[in-house]
Amino acid sequence: MLGRTANGLFWMFRYLERAENTARLLDAGLRMALTRDLVSSEEEWRSVIQTAGQRRAYEAKHGTYTGVQTWNFILRDKDNHSSVMQMFDQVRTNARLSRNAISSELWEAINESWMQIKDMLARPVTQSTVGQVVAMVRRGGTLVHGAMAGSMLRSEGYHFARAGTFLERGESTARILDIKYYLLLPSFSYVGSTHDTGQWDTVLRSVSGDRGYRFLNAGQIDARGIVEFLLLDNRFPRSLAFCHSALRDNLRALAKIHGAEGLSNELMRDADTRLADMTVDEVFEMGLHRFLTDFMSSNAAIGSAIAEDYRFTA
């Protein structure tokens, strides 16, 4: 496979994951804002923008935080290079670039989702349609992943695509936790006083983990439990541990196909060892922020090593 094609597949799925995660974040914010008064809902929208990593771009354009402004900015603003629309454009552009390496079912799933989303986002999104748009973005992601699972050869292209997915997903969970934890730190102690469980509920919703967490923890919401769930619980498909082990499997498969291990496999092994022995107590001892920062930079290093090992660019 061409290095450029591998690059296209990898980024196609990173952007898809990013678009989906942004939609989840927005969904959680919407729900939160509904249950709040005007002042704290403004606070909530600021937090959504910040968690999405779009604060600077947003504030360059708007002085206030309102729901309509926020979701239009996140979903479709032409000045926002990380808008869901622009990410979906990237998904499709990369799919066109890698057209030969993907099944026609996968291509059609991407193209059709893109056409629907583009159509919905052609006009400003109102209170009554925002939920529908968010659902459509998530459904687009589901459709694409499903088409891939059912029709793609399990050759290197598949593993590049999956590596992109899990690298991005792990990073996204880590970032959400890092930002939210920082915001909430003064207001509660890690042993579990429940000053504002609503915020933690939002964190769980942002990663579609609210039901899973409640199921495993009998409804008990506390910081320690949630952090453990999002970081170390291998059963939750958006936890750092899960993403890491899936990424490891994909990188191992790539090494096997290519008959040689590269720097990415080496870095992956190091990262694995660090994460495998971790307990939640050790995480807090080390400092959650530092732990997450380390995780994100190791993740980024693995990403660069993949690009290097497999000659993504000239």
């Binding site: 496979m1 061409l2 290095g3 290197e156 290519h258 000659r311 000239a314």
Partner: peptide, 16 residues
């Protein structure tokens, strides 16, 4: 950008 002249042949940059 995928092609380059190497050892008297035209090579395409693959993942290998």
């Amino acid at each position: 950008t995928d092609l380059r002249v190497i050892d008297g042949r035209v090579g395409m940059r693959t993942t290998r």
